[in-house]
């Protein structure tokens, strides 16, 4: 009898453990998001607003070359190009660049731009105060727009890094529309 009780107790504890691990699997999702944001993995840090630390100084002694590239996911029929192919920036300095997008699909579209930054070790230092990738973007049929990105590079970035690439992949986000649809903040509609 005693042993049956002990068995039940241990089984119960282990089942709790199993349930916890199942939950842990789902916890991995926000956990991963958090670590990626912190470490800049997959450009996750570049997907949300950061504000410049007060008293951040511009380091004029260093210049970092930033390349901009764009990718159309599954070749969605957009024209999507950086208006600046490459700029030089000093760490700590905030710059504004524009990306041009035109909806050529013949339909209304909701798109989401996913940023990605290389080298991976530079990613967490590239910070944005405003970006069209923070939210989904709505495009009417044939609509064109210039979309802004305000960004700076944290002076804490490793001195070895002299080139950074910022890439945006434009995804068709239909079916995943968020509530703030038709979001067009900061956009210059042409």
């Amino acid at each position: 009898m005693n042993i049956q009780k002990a068995n039940k107790r241990l089984t119960f504890m282990l089942v709790c453990g199993v349930i916890f691990m199942f939950g842990f699997c789902y916890m991995l999702v926000p956990l991963y998001e958090l670590i990626c944001k912190k470490e800049g993995i997959n450009g996750k840090s570049a997907r949300s607003v950061t504000t410049a630390a007060p008293g951040m100084k511009i380091d004029y002694s260093r210049t970092i070359k930033v390349d901009f590239i764009t990718v159309l996911h599954h070749d969605i029929r957009f024209k999507f190009i950086p208006l600046h192919r490459r700029i030089d920036i000093h760490p700590g300095e905030t710059k504004l660049v524009y990306f041009f997008a035109e909806n050529q699909t013949g339909n209304e579209m909701t798109v989401q731009a996913i940023p990605s930054i290389t080298p991976t070790d530079a990613a967490r230092f590239l910070k944005k105060t405003e970006c069209f990738c923070f939210t989904q973007q709505f495009f009417a049929r044939g609509q064109k727009a210039d979309m802004p990105v305000y960004f700076f590079i944290d002076p804490a970035i490793s001195k070895d890094i002299k080139e950074v690439t910022l890439s945006y992949t434009l995804f068709d986000a239909r079916g995943f529309e968020k509530k703030q649809a038709h979001f067009t903040k900061g956009r210059i509609n042409l």
Binding site: H73, S116, T118, T120, S167, T169
Partner: peptide
Amino acid sequence: ALGVKQDAIPGYINE
């Protein structure tokens, strides 16, 4: 022979 293998992942850019 170029010493490169790098995964190509949709949405992300690898270097």
